[in-house]
Design a protein around this nucleic acid. Sequence first.
DNA 1: ATGACGGTGTGGCACCGA
Length: 258
Amino acid sequence: MKIATWNINSLSVRLPQVLAWLAAHPVDVLCLQELKLTDDKFPFEALHAAGYEAACFGQKTYNGVAILARTPLTDVVRNIPGLDDDQARVLTATVQTPHGPLRVINGYFVNGQAPGTDKFAYKLRWLQALLGHVQAELAAHPRLALLGDFNVAPEDRDSYDPVGLAGTIHHTPEERAHFQALLDLGLTDAFRLFEQPEKSYSWWDYRMLGFQKNRGLRIDHILVSAALREAVTACSIDRAPRKNPQPSDHAPVLATLA
DNA sequence: ATGACGGTGTGGCACCGA
């Protein structure tokens, strides 16, 4: 089976690209971030016609996440239990697979703007709360994957300019410590299980010819639990949609599980 | 040091993203 994540920066604008991508890559699970629409505007019918069930946690203008799957989604949890948060950033659900249930956590992590700002403090609070949520979910669901836009470049090799951008947003020690804390729960970065091209990124700034110059960051990730690790046979970033007319600034990341 | 591009909302721009 294949699972994937893609920040599509407005589902209203990008729905045709999502449908085209699914037609070319019929993954079993697709986590979407930055829907930028409310649940009542979510295109359930178009996705169902394409063969996908969906759970949506939308919001007007900003944020919003959804999980698409070929089989029904159950035990859906919206946002992080216990965290008072008016932003729609996390959606958790179970999908059935031939090897048993798979718990999927889809996260649109806080951007954080810059160290020292209120938004950065919110990011750190949010990351701490997410860690607790993932830990609790893992205890109940050993077969678990955490996918999404993490807004963290975990290592220097995940950034086009690790020296110039050292200590700036996505590159701070605090953010990287939180990413490591997720790994310390027993999760594994599926992308790094395999040989990868140098300078592999999942996001490029719209400005300054960022994509053409490959000035990007690898901030979209698929983390798998120990119970799934051995089953992962591939993980890659699909840069092709970034070349579309009217692209999202993010590319999809997908993993194959035996 | 700043802004650059793109989406949204309801606007004549400001805001947010990363």
